[in-house]
């Protein structure tokens, strides 16, 4: 598996291919959402909702062999696409890698301008929640 930096570079080059065509870029983000693994229906409960998102985003995390495994879902396709990008970068990594990750791909693909301020705030909330899970597992593993 590529490094966090390597995967971010991959994502940036994929978005580069789409160029300035905003419509195609948004369609592409929606398509990415379709690749998210199935989310257990039983976990679609309020305590798994991320606070600070306008649309509904459920996120759960488990620890497997010292690595964090994320599962997420949303009621909107664009949001699903966004979280699928985050999972692609951060899933199956050690808590240390996740906590020290600099997620520069978001700025490099101009995501803020693409999705607007409301969704950017939501995206920041998702990252915060993913890092919080990593911190919790780090504490647990070091205990």
């Amino acid at each position: 598996m590529s490094s966090i930096t390597g995967i971010q570079d991959e994502i940036v080059s994929e978005f580069d291919i789409l160029g300035d065509d905003r419509e195609s870029t948004i369609f592409y983000i929606m398509e990415l959402g379709g690749n998210l693994p199935d989310f257990p229906a039983a976990e679609q409960k309020d305590e798994n909702l991320i606070k600070g998102c306008q649309s509904k985003v459920w996120l759960i995390a488990n620890e497997e062999n010292g690595k964090v495994r994320y599962l997420a879902d949303s009621n909107t396709d664009i949001t699903k696409g966004l979280i699928s990008l985050l999972i692609r970068v951060l899933d199956n990594r050690t808590p240390e890698e996740i906590l020290s990750a600099d997620l520069n791909f978001i700025e490099r693909i101009g995501m803020g301008n693409l999705i607007g301020s409301q969704r950017s705030n939501g995206l920041a909330a998702m990252i915060k929640q993913m890092k919080l899970y990593a911190l919790a597992f780090q504490t647990k593993l070091n205990a």
């Binding site: 870029t25 999705i115 969704r119």
Partner: peptide, 14 residues
Amino acid sequence: GMHPFDVGQMLDAR
């Protein structure tokens, strides 16, 4: 099958 917010954002792209 689509969330109104997504539709709005795609129309904004146009």
